[in-house]
């Protein structure tokens, strides 16, 4: 499957996406606006609580082309963060007390400077999270990475949209589930997911369709039971993540006729407590070209940090960024529905 951008699909254009989630038809047009909901609970303008997580998207290249991917990542994407830009990130991190560096993509492992960068961040004493699709670690070129990451105490957060093969493969491609099980067993063998080692292995659930995630805690118990009983696999935590209506997931919503219902569901499920805890309040997202965003979703919609805050890593200024106004739009309802959603799962 090609990425939307490689297909020259209109929905690969961020402006078209923003237009669709705002104006797809009269029904969508008349739905409550995110800014209005924030205003009603006194959260407008949305301000940071302080940046704690430095999330770097090191490139959109991926070995997979998942149906729901908000990045529109895939083997045909060539956007990769250069060593020079990674160095700017290191310079910003050196002078800050931000403790967590979160590496995402695409498949972050495919950035040619991945190992060097992990080493450098590790030397700074920061906690590193790598968001892995698992299957990349089942290839010869990357098979040594589990041990490499274990040696540096890297936390691995990986995608597993459901504990069943059927649903996982529908979303992520035939054979994904079996490969994922193979890699999870390898990770377990070197100590990942085992309480006594401190090597954190977390799984990410996201709905395979146009519905909201289940209760995180109860689903975690199901995952634990099923993965242990069926494969003798252990892991630390499960994060439930809501799909945001952008990129390939938006394409699915439009093509399946679910857009109106889904947007309506997100909006009627707006939870003020979840809005208080949205991840953009403690996260900064750095794009492959060094541009700064309030989150990875804004990055994909090319909505840079605004209102006078620096918008490129070259101009890093933590004080200014901590007092910025966060840029919002209708997709943000995905993070405030129900129990809320973030890269660390539910927020309430």
């Amino acid at each position: 499957m090609k990425s939307l951008i490689a297909q020259s699909h209109s929905l690969s254009d961020p402006n078209v996406q923003i237009d669709v989630i705002n104006n797809h038809n009269d029904k969508v047009k008349n739905l409550d606006k995110f800014e209005k909901k924030l205003d009603e609970i006194g959260l407008l303008p949305l301000k940071p609580t302080g940046i704690e997580i430095f999330q770097i998207n090191v490139g959109y290249m991926c070995n997979m082309t998942c149906k729901h991917c908000h990045v529109d990542a895939g083997p045909d994407r060539k956007e990769i963060m250069t060593k020079e830009t990674l160095q700017y990130c290191l310079d910003a991190l050196k002078d800050s007390d931000i403790q967590t560096v979160d590496l995402t993509g695409g498949a972050p492992e495919m950035n040619p400077h991945f190992r060097w960068f992990v080493d450098e961040v590790s030397k700074l004493g920061k906690h590193i999270i790598v968001r892995s699709n698992l299957t990349i670690l089942d290839t010869r070129k990357f098979e040594d990475l589990p041990q490499f990451m274990a040696d540096r105490g890297v936390e691995i957060t990986c995608s597993l949209p459901f504990y069943s093969k059927r649903r996982t493969d529908i979303q992520r491609g035939e054979g994904t589930y079996d490969k994922s099980m193979t890699v999870l067993k390898i990770l377990n063998e070197i100590g990942y997911g085992k309480e006594e080692t401190g090597l954190l292995l977390n799984l990410v659930y996201n709905p395979v369709g146009a519905f909201l995630p289940p209760d995180q805690e109860s689903l975690k118990q199901d995952y634990k039971e099923r993965l242990w009983n069926d494969h003798s696999i252990v892991f630390n935590d499960l994060f439930t993540i809501t799909n945001l209506p952008i990129s390939r997931y938006l394409h699915f919503l439009v093509m399946s006729g679910n857009l109106e219902e889904y947007m309506e569901k997100l909006i009627t499920s707006f939870n003020p407590s979840a809005a208080m805890g949205v991840m953009c309040r403690n996260t900064i997202s750095i794009g492959w070209d060094g541009s700064l965003y309030d989150c990875d979703f804004n990055q994909m919609l090319q909505m840079k940090t605004n209102h006078g805050a620096p918008d490129h890593i070259k101009n890093w200024n933590l004080k200014k960024l901590n007092s910025r106004e966060i840029v919002v739009n209708q997709h943000c309802f995905g993070c405030t529905a129900g129990a809320g959603s973030s890269c660390g799962g539910a927020v309430t």
Binding site: F162, Y163, S164, R166, R167, P207, G209, F211, L212, P213, P214, D215, S218, L219, D222
Partner: peptide, 12 residues
């Protein structure tokens, strides 16, 4: 059906 999916039940 939607509620069961959102409660985490599998198709089976």
């Amino acid at each position: 059906t939607e509620e069961s999916l959102e409660k985490g039940y599998s198709e089976e």
